[in-house]
Design a protein around this nucleic acid. Structure first.
Lengths: 136, 136
DNA sequence: GTAGCTGCAAACTCTTTGCAACTCT
DNA sequence: AGAGTTGCAAAGAGTTTGCAGCTAC
């Protein structure tokens, strides 16, 4: 798998220090960081970086389909570095986001769309829940 | 089924002219109007109404669980006057929103949540598609 | 009479953008 | 050298709020 940096360079983008920093952060992100989170991590590596650059870089990457903008029920966006189709379970107590996929679900969704007379182009399933405490 | 106005009055809210106007609009809405849309319809009936009142009324109704705030992939919120659990198929060509429900889907979602170790408290499924042109 | 509601305008949050300076290629 | 990129600050969109006056109860 090519790194984000390689893909961006191959697409003809100039690899500035700021971009390398942001790409590295996204490459290593194991969560679904908000713009502010990316900015905070970027600033820790390069204090001169501005939030405008973070916004511009994230928009650019989204347009290139290297990352996905997600809008959960929050007032701000988060970015998903996993571009494979999947869904989310959002832990209402911790804010943690768990990714999952399920073939049966895909099948039913296609079936429902078809029954409604639609070609399914995109969709999102976000589940909100609370971790079940298992007895020790 | 009690009207929104009845429910609000019973909850102890003062039934001002502005509120009655907004409740009537919501009662009659067959779409998923944005705040601006509710405001425009309200203004047509009572030109003195302010958008602040629309925002305040919609927030209030949402808190009372009489309407649901929806955030599709747009930069603004829409309100859903159907509080029964259901999902959405959004027509990417017209913006039209179709509601549906499906028992098999519900069953699978509960199963997935359980397998992930979660109690499912809420969820949303939004499908985006294009109408299939049926041959004439 | 008074608690609750309203319109107005200012403020707030998140995001985008114009511009002059700078930097990869 | 030159197009692309940056930081800054201002602007924009959507939403919330403080306040003085008003109104349903």
């Amino acid at each position: 798998m090519k790194t984000l940096e390689t893909r961006c360079a191959e697409a003809g983008l100039k690899m500035t220090g700021q971009r390398k920093t942001i790409l590295k952060i996204l490459e290593e992100a194991e969560d679904h960081p908000s713009v502010e989170a990316v900015y905070a991590r970027a600033k820790a590596l390069d204090s001169s970086i501005s939030i405008a650059t973070v916004y511009r870089t994230l928009s650019l990457l989204e347009e290139m389909e290297l990352i996905i903008k997600r809008e959960f029920n929050e007032s701000f966006a988060r970015y998903d570095t996993n571009t494979d189709h999947h869904h989310h379970m959002i832990d209402l107590e911790t804010g943690e986001v768990i990714e999952f996929k399920n073939e049966e679900l895909e099948r039913i969704k296609r079936k429902i769309a078809h029954e409604l007379g639609y070609e399914l182009l995109d969709h999102r399933l976000d589940m909100y829940g609370r971790k079940i405490k298992s007895p020790l």
